[in-house]
């Protein structure tokens, strides 16, 4: 097996008395497409904050491409090839869509290279995302769903080795979702970029990924093939009372 590009070792994050992430381990290898699911409040987004350096974990280690980045600021993570999106899209509202994408390329992406140059042109990235004609529109004027797509473009422009996606499907039409899922697969296939993907709509995600990890109350309770995970009693237990019945997980 190849070395992991991103490795979380026993990552723990506390907010006062609440333990949002409790000793979570996760290894992501180049070219892997990993889903991250869990009921509301399971600690998924907090875990992403730790993986991207937005929050420093209270315990545990974070290793990116062999370098120990534990406790370093977010921009160092970005420069080592960790790119992310946010649950509520965060774009530079006053800049145009094109400038938003260029931003990623000018900073984190500047000292990094992609395997080939298909994703080296901001306008081309917008085109892949179906935002080609919106290049000159201020990002704040786009619909929230399109801002979500734009964020993927900003992250891609940073030339990452691992891409952290915090909810892609929310607000997208089926066609838009298909397009961005296809793009994510293409990025993975062509560039070998690893992708970790949080999605609240579990079914959509299960169709797309080859591996899924489940967080529950801050702990990782399962990690593996989606079909096997969906039948795992601990996972079924965790999802009881959620709106999605366990049977549909396996569907």
């Amino acid at each position: 097996m190849p070395e992991p590009v991103l490795s979380a070792r026993a990552v723990t994050v506390r907010f006062g008395g609440l333990v949002a992430c409790d000793g979570v381990d996760l290894d992501v290898r180049a070219g892997e497409l990993v889903g991250l699911i869990g009921p509301n409040g399971a600690g998924k987004t907090t875990f992403f904050h730790a993986l991207s350096g937005v929050l420093a974990p209270d315990a545990g280690r974070l290793i990116v491409g062999g370098a120990d980045l534990t406790g370093r600021p977010a921009h160092v993570f970005a420069r080592h090839g960790v790119a992310r999106t946010f649950q509520t899209p965060r774009v530079f509202r006053d800049m145009t869509a094109l400038e938003n994408v260029r931003f990623g390329m000018e900073f984190a992406g500047r000292s990094r290279v992609h395997a080939h140059d298909a994703f080296d042109d901001p306008q081309a990235i917008l085109g892949f995302l179906g935002l080609g004609e919106a290049a000159a529109v201020p990002a704040g004027a786009l619909t929230p769903a399109r801002q979500r797509l734009l964020e993927i473009g900003m992250a891609l422009a940073a030339r990452p080795r691992v891409l952290l996606l915090d909810e892609v499907a929310a607000g997208l039409t089926h066609a838009e979702l298909e397009a961005s899922a296809a793009l994510i697969r293409r990025v993975r296939d062509e560039l070998g970029v690893a992708v970790v993907w949080i999605e609240h709509a579990v079914r959509v995600l299960m169709d797309q990924v080859e591996r899924v990890a489940v967080l529950h109350q801050g702990r990782k309770i399962a990690d593996g093939d989606p079909r096997a995970v969906a039948r795992d009693p601990a996972v079924v237990e965790a999802y009881l009372g959620e709106e999605i019945e366990p049977q549909r997980l396996a569907a």
Binding site: S52, G53, V54, P73, A74, H75, F77, A78, R79, A83, R84, F86, R90, V91, F92, R93, D94, M95, E99, R102, F103, G104, E106, F107, A108, G109, R110, M154, A158
Partner: peptide, 18 residues
């Protein structure tokens, strides 16, 4: 551009390598 990024959304700018 980095200054403008800080003005617009500082944390976002950081996660993009600034």
């Amino acid at each position: 551009l980095a200054l403008a990024g800080v003005g617009s959304d500082e944390e976002r700018a950081r996660t993009l390598g600034v």
